[in-house]
Design a binder for these strands. Structure first.
Lengths: 340, 340
DNA sequence: CCGAAATATTTACGCGGGTAAAATTACAAT
DNA sequence: ATTGTAATTTTACCCGCGTAAATATTTCGG
């Protein structure tokens, strides 16, 4: 199949003028039927596709959409990104995926290069605490941006996430009802969610008339399992868990703690002969396959990603005026498995 | 800080001609020192960066590098991609990351749009069996491509992966030496590696004078843990494992089988009181945190990604002539944990 | 079959910057 | 100071396509 270098030549061989061909590529239905037939015939005979760079250079807003997640090696974000990507494709956009890998410099680099790509919009799950707020703000002024997963107050056109103040009490209530009230196992918070979860835990416990017990451990970065494991062992050895039930700030931490308990010979579960109960939060894709399987709260991945995308499209289509920032929180659902 | 719309204006305010500024942006050292100082001074005073689309449109080879993996929700590929991304950035390229999500159509879509991006090169971990070979071939003719993880015979400028015929025998030998000879637990192969591993297993067993036992289970797609779990339970119930030791085709399958064994009340490990031993292959990032921790063969992630990138750079810099296709296999190392 | 509105196509120009070749400059050696 | 040469800078002309305005064509009521 003969390759055609540019639209000019392609227009010539299809017997149509170049601008009409250009119209066709933007919207095949915008040209006369007979014209369209001619073009599509030519498309079968010759190998041609418009040059992406030339297309975008002279257009005010491109068809690309940036997706930025803090840590792609976390299957939670990988799944989320997958969902979002698909929605964008379905809507005729070209998604570009970036991961900050938990590093502030990378996030800023990504935003910088994203800005020069002039994307139609960006879906951003920010690092959170360690994000460069000034940069974020100025970025969001240039590019329609929807935040998801982690909120940064006042930044972006919308925020979509899950409602920690609903999900954590849900779990606390369940744990209290079925056994000893839980301690809360957390690490240094990487984003606002962690803080909210701690507060939600404390409030829920107080509400039920129990004394909250927070086991706070050190550890930086995104190697949550590692932290949960190493610090879990230390916490167990130091008898830092006041009750036999531990609610972890997230599933990955719980997976680490599960490994710690196993190593220390503690049987985890709610049956007889079990020394401890462990619960998580997020319904991580691997939580079904831990031993024992992890009782957790499922975030509504799909609702969050779907709604994020829709919110972004709404912003893109709306004019500058209606820039009413919205925050949407989805409730979690209890996933009872065998660990608690 | 005042925004400057294009290079023309920027050149004017810095008192230099546009083409010289253009040169500067390609290589700051290629202009006279005094010129560079002027430009960098202006860069501090005004806000300007060249338009990406305009830059690339008229250049034969861009500075973008495509990275394509079959399934990004698999932390193995996520880690790999992270590594590769970083190397590309360090070398002054702009990596773009894509995931086929295990679907052939998506892989072809990605390759198609990648081709029109005119990337300097592409690092591709193909789906394997379900890849569109014709498309792959024609793609590789247009774009310098290095395959990694899964090979497609004869396609691309190079292949970099791990040596299944070294790693599997390593594990088989270890398992035979320390207990009952292993069965081999596998699912329908998604790529050539799976086939190689089965053959390597069979040969290794024969070589040691043992009868190979292959437990082949059904299951499509990339939900390996799910398959390992569901089919693992059936295999255990049906007593399909001829010995108490199971070598899984990969870690994710092993994670599923581990969950199955746990549910069936079978204690896994090599100590007394253990009913079975389970080993994996890949050293998946989560394998350290399974219960019990998974004995496996570590693929040399870093070596593979590093070498892939270097191979690609070599191809990019070399001329058309020296297109000697190379295959590089890295050996695995035994990671003894507690499951076998 | 006519004429006006609605569509479709063409004309003409611009976008932002790459890059060969010409012109200028710098620098070292006479 | 002069000259030769290498390094820089300019000149000049593209690239491939978007898009407003002008023109042509179709559609359709009457």
């Amino acid at each position: 199949m003969q390759k055609i270098p540019n639209m000019e030549s392609f227009a010539r061989v299809s017997g149509i003028s170049r601008p009409t061909v250009s119209k066709y590529f933007h919207d095949p239905d915008s040209v006369r039927k007979s014209t369209r037939a001619k073009i599509e015939q030519a498309l079968k005979t010759y190998d041609y596709s418009p040059n992406i760079y030339a297309i975008n250079q002279n257009r005010r807003l491109t068809k690309t959409i940036g997706i930025v997640v803090p840590y792609l090696a976390d299957p939670f974000f990988a799944e989320m990104a997958r969902n979002i990507e698909q929605r964008c494709i379905d809507a005729g956009f070209s998604p570009l995926l970036f991961s900050s890998h938990g590093r502030t410099e990378l996030e800023t680099d990504i935003l910088r290069s994203l800005r020069s790509l002039k994307p139609a919009g960006v879906l951003l799950a920010p690092l959170g605490r360690s994000s460069d707020r000034d940069l974020l703000e100025s970025f969001c002024e240039d590019v329609p941006t929807v935040l998801f997963d982690a909120n940064v107050e006042g930044v972006g056109e919308a925020f979509v996430g899950s409602d920690n103040f609903q999900s954590i009490p849900l779990m606390v209530e369940y744990l209290c009802r079925t056994g000893e009230p839980p301690c809360f196992f957390e690490m240094a918070p990487v984003n606002p969610n962690a803080n909210k979860r701690r507060r939600a835990y404390t409030e829920a416990m107080m509400g039920l008339g129990h004394q909250p017990h927070i086991v706070h451990v050190d550890g930086d970065g995104w190697a949550f399992e590692e932290i949960g494991h190493a610090e879990g062992i230390r916490a167990i050895e130091g008898r830092r868990f006041a009750t036999n039930t531990v609610l972890c700030s997230n599933d990955r931490l719980a997976i680490g703690l599960l490994a710690a308990a196993y190593e220390k010979g503690l049987r985890v579960g709610r049956g007889h002969g079990c020394a401890m109960r462990i619960a998580g939060h997020d319904d991580h894709p691997f939580s079904r396959f831990t031993c024992p399987s992890l009782t957790t709260v499922a975030q509504d991945y799909e609702a969050i990603s779907d709604h994020s995308v829709e919110a972004l499209f709404a912003v893109i289509e709306a004019s500058e005026e209606d820039r009413q920032r919205t925050e949407t929180l989805f409730p979690g659902t209890l996933v009872m498995r065998t660990s608690a």
